[in-house]
């Protein structure tokens, strides 16, 4: 099982801040497509993905137990 986290505008669009899905074996790119089917928010397309609190590229493979966070463009400071 994998935990998905949504933040900021994406959290509001999805209507939830975390959800569990089985995504092991998929790439980040595939995960984005799969999550988009459930939460069709345009913001998913512009979001960065972090796996276990580290930025991950499109080809990064998800493993069992990984935490996957969807991060809209940041605006701290």
């Amino acid at each position: 099982m994998n935990q998905l986290l949504f933040f900021a505008g994406l959290k509001e669009a999805a209507g939830t801040e975390n959800v569990n899905m089985d995504l092991a074996g998929l790439t980040v790119e595939e995960v984005k497509k799969k999550v988009f089917e459930v939460y069709p928010s345009e913001q998913l397309q512009t979001s960065m993905v972090a796996v276990n609190e580290e930025f991950a590229g499109q080809e990064h493979k998800i493993e069992e137990g990984d935490t996957i966070a969807f991060l809209p463009p940041v605006s701290g400071g």
Binding site: F7, A8, A50, A69, L71, P72, V74, S75, G76, G77
Partner: peptide, 14 residues
Amino acid sequence: AIERIKEIVPIWKK
């Protein structure tokens, strides 16, 4: 430091 914060630190403002 402040420029990098605005690039890579996952914080958002509304």
